[in-house]
Design a protein around this nucleic acid. Structure first.
Length: 100
DNA sequence: CCCATGACTAATT
DNA sequence: AAATTAGCCATGG
């Protein structure tokens, strides 16, 4: 199974209004955050796959194929609160970052 | 096969 | 607190 496919399979599991970091994805896939990011950057279906729910480990939103503006807009639309490109309530150790 | 390139991170300055 | 630096690993040339 291709690496990118493994990444996307995980990404689709992220619930609405929540976010996962590149790092956590990488750990789960025994890879590196950079490799994960690269896989998402070449995401063939930026609409179908919710890759906007993958953020940086420091709480900043990180990049997006269609631009940060769009990424933030999508997250906000799902109820995620963001200030200065940074997610709020980014302080828990649960599997997914709970926001809202 | 070798090398450069990132939607990144952690440690250091 | 912001900027640099050194690792990271899948991918494409």
């Amino acid at each position: 199974m291709e690496f990118q496919e493994r990444v996307l399979k995980e990404v689709v599991k992220i619930p609405r209004g929540k976010a996962l970091t590149y790092k956590k994805l990488a750990l789960k896939l025994n890879s590196s955050p950079r490799a994960v990011a690269k896989a998402l950057a070449s995401n063939p279906w930026p609409i179908k796959i919710p890759c906007h729910r993958v953020v940086m480990s420091n709480g900043k939103v990180g990049g997006y194929k269609l631009g940060k503006k769009m990424k933030i807009k999508l997250l906000r639309k799902e109820g995620v609160r963001i200030k200065m490109e940074r997610l709020l309530n980014f302080n828990n150790n649960s599997k997914f970052k709970k926001v809202r």
